[in-house]
Amino acid sequence: MLHTPAHRPAPDTGQLLSVSTVPDPRPGRVVVEVVGEVDSYTAPALDLCLTSQARQPGVRELVVSLGRVTCLDAAGVEVLARAHRCCRMRGIRLVVRTGGRHRVLRPLQLTGLADLVAVDPADVEGPQPRGRPTRGRPQTTPRRPSARRPRRVCR
């Protein structure tokens, strides 16, 4: 039987993603550790966990640890954006740890989510990795409009 992308069966999400709550000594702080791929098949499990943790009484800070995530696609970024909205409505600070992983940090930067949530803050994760900054988009200088010459057409 030929499987086309429209008829492809969903993979077993239990093997692709692990989401667990890690104990934290600080009161009011919940750490959710994510391991594996966060894509359109596994994102609903992460969404369910983050939403339920954000709705717990007494939570003031929700930390999402993505240091062991191997893939973060648009569905995963959307889950983090939803968690950000839920946390903001409840007065909870959302913190995202990327562990310095470019494949996790880059989608957050490209979508602008890194500008809205605390990504790899020094007060949560400890010493920052050296190298490029992990927050926001790089500043670029605008180009000056070029004085274009009229195009010559060969005849």
Results as ranks from 00 to 15, higher is better:
Arg85Met: 12
Arg90Gln: 03
Val31Gln: 08
Ala147His: 09
Leu116Thr: 09
Asp12Val: 04
Arg60Ile: 04
Gly28Asp: 02
Ala83His: 04
Pro150Glu: 12
Cys49Val: 15
Gln109Tyr: 06
Ser40Arg: 11
Val32Leu: 01
Asp73Thr: 09
Thr134Pro: 09
Pro9Ile: 09
Gln109Leu: 09
Val95Trp: 07
Ala6Pro: 04
Leu80Lys: 07
Leu110Trp: 06
Ala43Pro: 06
Val95Leu: 04
Pro11Gly: 13
Pro150Ile: 08
Gln109Pro: 07
Glu33Ser: 11
Arg135Cys: 11
Pro27Leu: 07
Ala122Glu: 14
Thr134Trp: 12
Gln56Lys: 12
Pro107Ser: 04
Arg88Ala: 10
Ala10Met: 12
Val95Arg: 01
Tyr41Asp: 11
Gly112His: 04
Pro27Asp: 01
Cys71Ser: 13
Met1Ala: 05
Pro25Leu: 09
Arg82Met: 04
Glu61Arg: 05
Arg8Ile: 13
Pro107His: 06
Cys86Phe: 09
Arg149Tyr: 12
Val95His: 02
Pro11Ser: 15
Arg137Lys: 04
Pro142His: 14
Ala81Trp: 11
Gly58Ala: 00
Gln53Thr: 15
Val35Gln: 14
Arg151Pro: 12
Pro150Thr: 13
Thr98Cys: 05
Leu46Asn: 02
Gly126Arg: 00
Val119Thr: 09
Leu72Lys: 12
